[in-house]
Design a binder for these strands. Structure first.
Lengths: 226, 226
DNA sequence: GTCTATAATGGGATAGAC
DNA sequence: GTCTATCCCATTATAGAC
């Protein structure tokens, strides 16, 4: 299980104030790669050259480490979603946002950090995907709920953009969009296998384009409610 | 962790030939609910009133138990997909299958077993969903690959139904459909929260309808390749 | 085939010296 | 804040009696 990771081993021992951050970096990576149960605190602290006991000193329990990993980035990330939505609204003078722009506004805050951010953001986004699958079955997946509010703001905008479509259809459709996005960032290489490398899990430009193509057409083609 | 499950405790000890099946039933359930790492062999054997050692006798390692769980149903399940596709073709005299029928033909073999099958099938379908997220990162998720061939048959049919759309768009779109389906059977209750119970994770009739609505419109609205 | 017993290791968590 | 040492239990896995 142990596996020396990218995080450089600590050399200067004794009171380095960034120890907490080192643990969070390693936890972020290993939780993302192996899931909560799949990564032990020994793996995590071993990967960043820190004593196991320090994770307890700094955070408490293993679940607390996960909580801290999410807390570290969640507010900033949710802020990015907020800004993305506000910008899209501004570009349209507060009028309903075109469906394809709204899709892009929702997808980009995750994908951008995934492709352009540092590795930490990559792992964080993957971890969120993991947690979304665990929610309602595992107590440790609760941190993920922080995103509920901002997601609902996007759905409200979608309702404004497509006022004639039933709320049920819009909720389901946005749910499918989220599923597609979540699955995509896990890069399972399912699509690479299925398409014999015509499509590539790691080609996020193609992903965004394909998402806009399908979901725009789908949302715009939904029948008005009777 | 231990948790007495639905599987009745074995009473008549000594050479009961169904011990293997009992272990598989319990493993199916617990792997589906907690993931591979989240369920231990103690949990599994404890849940069905069998000695831990017997799981090693019958299967070998923990990964072998998982493999056996999948093997037990995979061939039958893949056969259901095959039949579903063949039937759809027959209904259309071998001509290209209408997109909404093709979507239904793909979704139903999983959903039907999920809603109408016994609990075992429910857990099995959920387990498949779990494995699809782990593939390419965990060696134990390999069993899932068995489904690649039949999925590709559906995609080939989709190409026949929509000959003017680029293969890229079709592969991505079908990938999104699979993501939506996979996520849905996990019943994370995300959509319940987001819609304030207007939509319900466990309402699979509504799910199928919404899938057909969105993905039919989306696929039919895809632009022809240039 | 099933059981008990046990090996061997891993893992979460804590105490206490420095 | 950091380290060593350790507790204690869970876990995978095996040996051997019945």
């Amino acid at each position: 299980m142990m596996d020396k990771q990218d995080i450089p081993i600590k050399t200067d021992r004794r009171r380095s104030p960034e120890t907490k951050e080192r643990i969070l970096d390693a936890a972020e990576k290993l939780f993302a790669e192996r899931g909560f149960h799949g990564a032990s605190l020994r793996d995590i602290t071993g990967a960043c050259g820190v004593q196991v006991a320090l994770s307890y000193y700094h955070f408490g329990s293993k679940e607390d480490v996960l909580q801290a990993v999410v807390d570290r980035r969640a507010i900033e990330h949710i802020g990015c979603y907020q800004k993305s939505l506000t910008d899209a609204l501004a570009r349209n003078d507060g009028k309903p946002i075109p469906v394809d722009s709204l899709i892009e506004a929702f997808v980009v805050p995750a994908i951008e950090r995934f492709t352009n951010g540092d590795d930490g953001w990559r792992y964080y986004i993957q971890l969120l995907a993991h947690l979304s699958y665990e929610s309602s079955r595992s107590s440790y997946a609760k941190p993920f709920f922080k995103y509920d509010d901002i997601v609902n703001e996007f759905i409200s905008e979608l309702k404004r953009s497509l006022p004639d479509v039933s709320a049920e259809d819009l909720h389901w459709s946005f749910y499918f969009l989220q599923s597609a996005l979540t699955n995509a960032v896990l890069e399972t290489q399912m699509i690479d296998r299925q398409s014999q490398n015509l499509c590539c899990s790691s080609d996020f430009d193609a992903l965004i384009k394909a998402m806009k193509n399908l979901f725009s057409a789908g949302l715009l083609g939904l029948k008005p409610r009777m």
